Simulated assay, not measured.
Amino acid sequence: MPPQPIHTNRLILIPFTLEATKTLMAGDTSILPKLGLQLTPFWPDQEAIDTFPKIIKNLELVKEPTGFESYMVVHRVSMTVIGDVGFKGLPNADGEVDIGYAIIAQAQNRGYGLETAQGLMNWAFQQPGVKAITARCLLGNAPSARVLVKLGMQQVSTTEDFIRWRISNPNLQPSIST
């Protein structure tokens, strides 16, 4: 069964399908009204277009979507796509999933990035096998770093380009060794 949309206060996270992503990557937005969405000149933006090949690759790795792929971020009132969010695949051997998100410039600084990431994190922490969520942001991306801090993530490492972040699943009890 394909993943269901995730509803937050102001947003609906609608799972990308292989067909929709390939159509959008080809520059054809006519699929959006077929999904009940309004067209906007602002999405897909260049960042979304650059992400489509990764979304397609992740969707092609699974027989059917699992929920650990990507979602369109839809503004509930206008029914327009204002960004995308997703994981870079199924949990790894340590039970970690890596989250990424992007909100179009016209919708930034309104809390949508935080609401988007929180909605997907809440969903992920209810899934079996998810022990932690990780993220990375460019060293100079202060707005993204602020969102990750508000999500409760902790910095775990820094390279010359990126900061890596992590949050453990709050639903898991720490193991007590005797």
Rank of each mutant, 00 (worst) to 15 (best):
M1P: 00
P5Q: 10
P5R: 12
I6C: 00
H7K: 15
H7E: 14
T8F: 05
R10E: 10
L11P: 08
I12A: 07
I12W: 06
L13S: 01
I14R: 12
I14A: 03
I14G: 01
I14N: 00
I14Y: 15
P15G: 09
T17P: 11
L18E: 09
K22Y: 06
L24Q: 03
M25T: 04
M25Q: 14
A26M: 08
A26T: 10
G27Y: 02
D28L: 07
S30A: 12
I31M: 08
I31T: 07
L32G: 03
P33F: 09
P33W: 08
G36L: 13
L37T: 01
L37K: 02
T40R: 04
T40M: 02
P41T: 06
P41H: 08
D45V: 08
Q46W: 08
A48Y: 04
A48K: 05
I49K: 15
I49H: 09
K54Y: 10
K54R: 14
I55R: 03
I56F: 05
I56H: 04
K57V: 10
N58L: 11
N58M: 00
L59V: 03
E60N: 15
E64D: 14
F68T: 01
S70D: 13
M72H: 06
V73D: 00
V74K: 06
V74M: 12
V74L: 08
V74R: 06
H75L: 10
R76W: 02
R76Y: 06
V77I: 11
S78M: 04
M79W: 12
T80M: 05
T80I: 14
T80Y: 01
D84L: 13
V85W: 00
G86W: 11
K88E: 10
K88W: 13
G89L: 00
G89S: 05
G89M: 04
G89W: 09
G89R: 01
P91G: 11
N92C: 10
E96A: 13
E96Y: 11
V97Q: 03
D98K: 12
I99Q: 01
I99Y: 02
G100A: 15
I103Q: 04
I103E: 00
I104A: 14
A105T: 12
Q106G: 01
A107T: 01
Q108C: 07
N109K: 14
R110S: 09
E115I: 05
E115G: 03
T116N: 03
T116H: 03
L120W: 07
M121R: 04
N122L: 01
W123K: 01
W123M: 03
A124K: 08
A124V: 09
F125C: 03
Q126E: 14
Q127F: 05
P128M: 07
V130F: 06
K131M: 11
K131T: 02
K131H: 15
A132Y: 00
I133C: 11
T134S: 13
T134D: 06
A135R: 04
C137A: 15
L139A: 08
L139S: 11
G140Y: 10
G140A: 12
N141I: 06
A142R: 06
S144M: 07
V147M: 11
L148I: 07
L151H: 09
G152W: 05
G152E: 04
M153V: 09
V156Q: 15
T158W: 03
T158V: 14
T158N: 08
T159G: 10
E160S: 15
D161Y: 11
D161S: 12
I163Y: 14
W165F: 11
N169E: 03
N169R: 02
P170Q: 09
L172F: 09
P174W: 07
S175E: 13
I176P: 00
T178R: 11
T178K: 08
